[in-house]
Nucleic acid binder design. Structure first.
Lengths: 120, 120
DNA sequence: CCGCATCCGTTACGATACTG
DNA sequence: CAGTATCGTAACGGATGCGG
């Protein structure tokens, strides 16, 4: 499958809306988070990441993120086994956004989620 | 319904994960965007916003965002008719994140979505 | 074993009709 | 105007199977 933006139904021409068409789900940004925090990680390593994503969802998300070039395989033309994923420039550019989400949550979600980590 | 964080199943203690437990969907941040761009807006005005959210989804999201204090009604104890929603401090604090999403999309989604607005 | 794909029950979403 | 009720569809989530 060599499609790219075809997989996405862009709701409008608004850039914010378009960003959410790609990242507006519960898993994509967590995958990016794991790759940014730990460096390259394999499929199985990503499966073990704290929150519990199921196998089919992870595979689907990884394919989408690869097709949109937010992440890539370390060895492009090797077989999947132990061929870790890493962020591209596009994915790495999301780091400030993830940091901002963390700060926002610590400030404004504290009263609703007392167990949340205070320092990252 | 006077619940708050009970409505949310927090997946982990990670602040990023927790932020996405609240905002990790296709509509919540778009509602915040509309309120930040246009100021207070009524239910019907929000319904008319470019992307087409359906009535039940909007009502559900508004209730969740109110319960988590990201938005509030202009006149707390008045009836719903013409009682617009506005962002609280919590919701307003998301403005830099939305701006960052816009910039990211314009830079990295351009090749997949040529019609996207270049300037906001 | 690792990296998925498939099957299937459950949940969320989305469009439309309808109500106070 | 501001929602709720209903119902069909799509996405999710867990279990399992299977090739390399």
């Amino acid at each position: 499958m060599e499609d790219a933006g075809q997989g996405i139904d862009w709701r409008s021409v608004c850039p914010i809306s378009s960003a959410l068409d790609v990242l507006g789900d519960k898993w994509s940004l967590l995958i990016i988070r794991d790759l940014l925090m730990h460096g390259p990680r394999t499929y199985t390593q990503l499966l073990g990441s704290g929150e519990h994503i199921s196998t089919n969802i992870l595979a689907t998300r990884l394919n989408l993120l690869v097709s949109l070039k937010l992440i890539e395989r370390m060895v492009p033309d090797a077989k999947a086994r132990n061929n870790a994923f890493r962020v591209t420039e596009s994915g790495a550019a999301l780091r400030p956004i993830l940091d901002a989400f963390a700060g926002w949550a610590q400030t404004y979600l504290d009263e609703f989620h007392a167990d949340m980590l205070k320092i990252v």
